[in-house]
Design a protein around this nucleic acid. Structure first.
Lengths: 267, 267
DNA sequence: CGGAGTTTGTTCTCGCGTTCACGAACTCCT
DNA sequence: AGGAGTTCGTGAACGCGAGAACAAACTCCG
């Protein structure tokens, strides 16, 4: 998900050639490949030689048709009437994603979350190697986390250059995130995984993915609220009925600038 | 995103009535509302009274048209020629998501990630109150994390019942996740945020959202690999050229079951 | 060797989400 | 008061992804 790709009109190339752009997987498919990969690893550990698309489907919680279509994008691995060779397919997916090579990763911001990320075994086991833990707070420097020492943030450029780091993780507080990202990009990082609750602005060509823990909870809360709008067991009974969206005409005065309530909130 | 909603045919109700289902926001819109909310909070702290859709757009990294369409789903707040009243809109979004009420939350699995989640201030400031930290490991019991004591996992049912917990977080290792989820559902939890790299199977009516840290990195790795397929600077020069997807006919023997490579991997 | 069973790969259709474009409504300036 | 400028809300077009259905291809059994 390249950040802010400018709207590009339809390519008016009429010939069948594919100028430059190889092909590219659909984003939705790409997001599922790691899930397949994990299931295949499980199957491989169970000494399973082959598996059908439906087997993979139940293991990963998607439909069989989706599995087949996703895998067909990688090429025609799999054999009709038999299924997919587990080890072979696993390798093909890993290669397609880029997991057959070793990705050095830098983590910046070694707070609670940074600790967790530094020690997350799921990274190492998938070709990602955390090569440095950086933090701006001098108090944290030298602290040992997951077998590594926390280093000053100013080491960023050196580490990125020496280790050829392309992927970095931001786990800092929100106010620092943009500055950290700028320094990363300047140093040569071109993919950023951002855990800070802030929107990052990066130049074209740099990918940013954002993971926001509280956003996920808020989405759950919405569905939860809709499940049982009646049994409001916690808090004072705020009898404010959810105003139906269909009562048109009722909302003639849309601008209650008089005294808009503002409950306290400290981010 | 209700897990495994059975394929439902088009509702053949021809009348205009909306039987039971109120309306429901589009999922894509819902996912962006928390982002708008955060931006509005920032604006409110800066004493900004009103803002336009384009202002909100640049702050949140989406397009202005999308912002307007999203907000129009909530109702016609906003004034033409002026924009949106920051405080008012903020309250409306919060109410729609369900953030005006207090959500008690239980966190299970107090490892590295559980620590981070327990101490995450972004939860408390958005109406989520962590009421219990549970872990199956007796060694962790009594440990103080973020001002709370870690309690035995068997306290789950009691806490859920007493505090009317509907939303829970799983931060356990993958093998334990399904069991934990089952216990949660049986206890009355109906929304689960799952950080364990495992696919959970839950009955209808229970929402599960999954956050997989390594999946995000893998998606970044894919894009990164495509950016520079040539300058493979790390690792031995594996000269395996990415086989173009178009060499049809070449792959006549799709079943290399002879010796499929299997690099070591420990999950 | 041939037919039945199985499973993949592909095509078609449908719905959702995004984007564009434009009327409606409000403010500000003269 | 009136016109110019601004901004929301919404209808229409478009593209992507999901789902169903089916032909092709492989195995197994007699």
């Amino acid at each position: 998900m390249t950040a802010r790709r400018p709207a590009r009109p339809a390519p008016q190339a009429a010939d069948g050639s594919d100028p430059g752009g190889e092909k590219g997987l659909p984003e939705a498919t790409l997001a599922r490949l790691p899930v397949y990969l994990r299931a295949l690893t499980t199957l491989a550990e169970a000494e399973t030689a082959t598996c059908s698309s439906d087997t993979l489907a139940t293991l990963t919680g998607v439909t069989g048709a989706k599995v087949r279509k996703d895998l067909s994008h990688l090429g025609s691995y799999g054999t009709r009437g038999v299924g997919y060779d587990v080890a072979y397919l696993r390798y093909q997916i890993a290669r397609e994603i880029g997991l057959t090579q070793d990705w050095p990763v830098v983590v910046v911001g070694i707070g609670n979350l940074g600790h967790a990320l530094a020690g997350y075994s799921g990274f190492r086991s998938r070709g990602f190697r955390v090569v440095a833990l950086l933090d701006a707070d001098p108090e944290r420097h030298g602290e040992e986390v997951a077998g590594m020492r926390v280093r000053p943030f100013d080491d960023l450029e050196g580490v990125v250059a020496e280790q050829h780091v392309k992927i970095a993780v931001i786990a800092t507080p929100a106010p620092a995130a943009q500055d950290v990202a700028d320094r990363m990009v300047a140093a040569g990082v071109s993919s950023i995984l951002n855990f800070a609750p802030a929107v990052l602005s990066v130049p074209d060509g740099v990918d940013v993915r954002k993971v926001d823990l509280s956003t996920e909870l808020q989405i759950l809360a919405y569905h939860e609220q809709r499940k049982a709008p009646a049994d409001r067991l916690v808090g004072p009974a705020d009898g404010v009925p959810v105003p139906g969206p269909g009562d048109a005409g009722e909302r003639a005065a849309p601008h209650p600038a008089g005294a808009p309530r503002r409950e306290e909130e400290h981010a």
